[in-house]
Design a protein around this nucleic acid. Structure first.
Lengths: 204, 204
DNA sequence: GTCTATAGAAGGATAGAC
DNA sequence: GTCTATCCTTCTATAGAC
């Protein structure tokens, strides 16, 4: 692969990422992607064969990014509270920098479940939960967290982080008419969400 | 409007609701809606003029339903804890019965912010928050809930309810490989989420 | 590798008969 | 009010010149 290839392929990939994030698979147009990449429509097919394959390449990269960015949290030797605070701060900051990501991923996984399985099957969640149970045995006992309730806890933490971005247009619109700022709300949220979870757990 | 009109218009509207919920505005096809309604494509235009207007009619009905179903919660003379438990039980049950609703609404409001404003502008959130503050003055004081933090609290409650459905395909997919059931998870969640919020608040 | 031109299909919308 | 036929546009994808 020559240097020129790489440049063009990269330009296409970046343009596609932008457009797909903004419009979704169904709403995105190959012409728009080509325009943004500053090349001809035919070149998209030359490099990626079809819209489907181009989309899959983009989606795969995004999912890979998500997992590799937050998997390390589990390796950290932190208390449950520290881990929660660390994760929520990092996760909310990450979505803050990529505002369309949450809505995009949530939408596409529901429209095309097959694409999800491809990634899920690579991961071993039983092992992941074992790790959590081992790392935080004492705290789980103390706070009465059972293996059954781990999914409830994890999805709750994710919910507090992801939902504001998924519902961003709605929340921002409400704030606008009430002299609130969405940005301030998100800044506050990093600590609020962490306190919320920690208090919810500790008070069991 | 004759009886026959109403029947056809209703059939179209129901078919459109189903298809739009499933495919979204961009993914939906007029032909598919016509097929499902058991009528010809031209009739869609006869009754609704365009895809846009048909979509708006469907979307408006859904948003109206959401508000009219949950606005009464605020009128109830319940404690903050009772209100939280009541709302979460009802809201999760509602989404349980309409599994595609959460994902659909979240996606469309981000794609078409104009449609959101149309509804938001009708509502007076300042008054709504005043009502909450008045109704629960003692509890707000006791639990240290300020006017500033009301949006954080409300979005947190909504997050715990909505997120599992918005991320349904992902969560269900993970559960599948681990002998968990999404339905059981949702049933549990009605109480788990309520406990979570109540504990988070009380422990401040 | 990149472009122009165009095929081929599908989608939304309308005209006009009944 | 409902249908058939069709227009016009748009979109993905390919052929072929350079």
């Amino acid at each position: 692969m020559t240097e020129k290839d790489k440049q063009t392929e990269e330009k296409i990939f970046e343009a596609a990422t932008t457009i797909f994030l903004e419009k979704g698979m169904d709403g995105a147009r190959m012409q728009e992607i080509a325009d943004r990449a500053g090349i001809n429509k035919s070149l998209l097919h030359y490099y990626y064969r079809s819209k489907d394959r181009l989309f899959n390449a983009v989606f795969e990269a995004i999912v890979r990014l998500l997992f590799q960015k937050f998997a390390p949290v589990l390796d950290e030797k932190l208390t449950l509270e520290e881990k929660t605070r660390f994760f929520l701060r990092e996760h909310i900051s990450f979505l803050q920098q990529n505002p369309r990501l949450a809505s995009f991923v949530l939408n596409e996984i529901n429209r095309n479940p097959a694409i999800v399985k491809k990634f899920i099957e690579k991961l071993d969640f039983n092992t992941l939960w074992d790790t959590l149970e081992t790392q935080h045995q004492d705290e789980f006992l103390k706070y009465n967290i059972t293996r059954e309730s781990i999914p409830q806890l994890i999805t709750s933490i994710l919910a507090l982080s992801v939902f504001p971005f998924a519902a961003r247009a709605l929340i921002a619109s409400i704030f606008e008419t009430n002299e609130f700022s969405f940005d301030d709300y998100i800044e506050q949220r990093k600590e609020y969400a962490a306190d919320f979870v920690v208090n919810a757990i500790k008070n069991k």
